[in-house]
Write a protein that binds this DNA or RNA. Structure first.
Length: 468
RNA sequence: GGCCGGGUGGCCGAGUGGCUUAGGCAAGGGACUGCAAAUCCCUGUACGCGGGUUCGAUUCCCGCCCCGGCCUCCA
């Protein structure tokens, strides 16, 4: 049974399912206002590992990740650049999709947009107003937080001790609420802003209500898991839970929050500080698989830092894995082997992931397999090597880090055969030079290949080449 | 002011009331190699500070210091 940390109960608990064999997950996706940064990708990768592990365990997964395609910032930025808000959000949605694809994050089962669900949102707000927990005020609709006794259960905040921040007052985010804690479900349209009709006049959805409406639309009023970044615990998830509860929905049974990515030095990554690293920036310095490794190797709840040094170390760690898989595959091929031969490491790996997605421990098991495999390779124990390679690749598959199937190298297929033939010519010439102990000539040939990016390695099994 | 997390060996990063005290990177030594590369083996006073509980604490409790997040929006 997979056990996961639950934010509400502050404990690791089994992920209970509404329906056996099926896991319903709702993830708060991005507000598509600016290009994705590495933090967005960390979120996606962490949850992708969760999803792939559930799939590996044979579960059916309905994975809902929304797109917030209308909000204050989108409207503001679009107006500033004289671009329609829908053009900006569409452009940014594409940028996010490309970023997710680049690191092989599985596409969500459904990716609902807020603007495509206004009727559901209006209906939900209507229920809340009818039920007396929400009220209209000057064209806005607010949820009366004090009317929801369970408010604060997820974040641990106590309504009596919350205070309205100075910043909110300074920015004029106070609206026409009866109580400072109340939050907007529906925002009355301002001059020149996009709006949709509603019983309370033209306006647009508040931020929190959209997730409640879309989660219920695709997963039902009770579902298994709600996930998102640690920065969403309060107020976003607290408010989602409050309004859903007020509407009579049991809502999410388990709440998962992943850690954030900081810039170098542990500083918060934010546009105002000018230190956010976009996915495009990161991919300019490391290949996608290394980015995935770097973002996915830490435990999902820990804070991780993004810097050149982190990227470099991730590249080195991944290279060790990749080298083993390629070297071993050269010798034993891609034959799949009875996993019973490697049952012990797999069980250890599975136990690590089952325990709150313990990726670091799982990677330790994987690295143990790599070390053992390298020794078997040297000892030329082929049957054992094949078994070890199989189990290592199965582990890599769960993490989506298999260099052969998940990240086939450039120049695969016919081009590889051509290059291989050319490299073999040089290898043969070098072999002749070595035979007559003409080390200068042999080394010159090796150096020339190296300067073209081809690294030669002399092994007991002959000469092996790889791209540097 | 309130609510959450953290502080582990040169770096990153797991974990545990005592056991061969993760793993990776980097460093040093050895093996292999014509030299390399790759690989294997070995090495290094680790657990923020001060108390307490305990036969024994990095791990539990109390206090303190420091760092980060949230309380407008943010993965």
């Amino acid at each position: 049974m997979l056990r996961l940390y639950d934010t509400r109960s502050r404990a690791i608990a089994p992920l209970a399912l509404q329906r056996e064999g099926h896991v319903g997950i709702y993830v708060c996706g991005p507000t598509v206002q600016a290009p994705p940064h590495v933090g967005h990708l960390r979120s996606a990768v962490a949850l992708d590992v969760l999803r792939r592990w559930l799939l590996e365990r044979g579960e059916e997964v309905t994975f809902v990740r929304n797109i917030t395609d209308i909000d204050d910032k989108i409207i503001h930025d679009a107006a500033h650049d004289d671009e329609p808000w829908w053009a900006l959000s569409t452009r940014m949605t594409r940028a996010f999709t490309q970023a997710y694809d680049a690191v092989q994050v599985l596409p969500p089962t459904v990716e609902p947009r807020v603007t495509g669900h206004v009727p559901q949102i209006v209906a939900l707000i209507g229920d809340l107003v009818a039920g007396g927990t929400a009220y209209e005020s000057g064209g806005d609709v607010y949820l009366a937080v004090k009317a929801v006794p369970s408010y604060g259960e997820i974040s641990g905040q106590k309504p009596d001790q919350l205070r309205q921040s100075d910043k909110a007052v300074a920015h004029g985010h106070t609206g026409t609420k009866r109580d400072p804690l109340d939050f907007a479900l529906w925002k009355a349209a301002k001059e020149g802003e996009p709006s949709w009709p509603s019983p309370w006049g033209p306006g647009r959805p508040g931020w929190h209500i959209e997730c409640s409406a879309m989660a219920v639309e695709y997963l039902g009023t009770t579902f298994d898991l709600h996930a998102g970044g640690l920065d969403l615990v309060f107020p976003h998830h607290e408010n989602e839970a409050a309004q859903s509860t007020a509407a009579g929905h049991p809502f999410a049974q388990h709440w998962l929050h992943h850690g954030l990515v900081t810039a170098k030095g542990g500083e918060k990554m934010s546009k105002s500080l000018g230190n956010s690293v976009t996915v495009a920036d990161a991919l300019a310095s490391v290949p996608p698989v290394v980015l995935r490794y770097a973002l996915g190797a830490a435990h999902y709840r820990s804070t991780i830092e993004w810097s050149e040094q982190v990227a470099t170390e991730a590249a080195a760690a991944y290279a060790r894995i990749e080298t083993f898989v390629r070297n071993a595959t050269d010798v034993v091929g891609e034959t799949s082997v009875d996993l019973a031969l490697s049952a012990a490491p797999w069980a250890e790996f599975a136990a690590a992931l089952d325990d709150d997605l313990g990726v670091p421990q799982a990677l330790a098991v994987l690295h143990g397999g790599v070390r053992a495999g390298n020794a078997l390779l040297a000892a030329r124990d082929l049957p054992a090597l094949a078994a070890t390679l199989s189990v290592v690749r199965r582990m890599l598959g769960v993490l989506c880090l298999d260099p052969l199937t998940d990240w086939p190298s450039v120049g695969s297929g016919e081009l590889t055969a051509v290059v291989d033939a050319l490299v073999q010519l040089a290898v043969e010439a070098r072999a002749q030079a070595r035979e007559r102990k003409d080390w200068a000539q042999a080394d010159a040939l090796r150096d020339r290949l190296a300067s073209s990016g081809v690294i030669l390695e002399d092994t007991a099994n002959g000469v092996r080449w790889r791209l540097s």
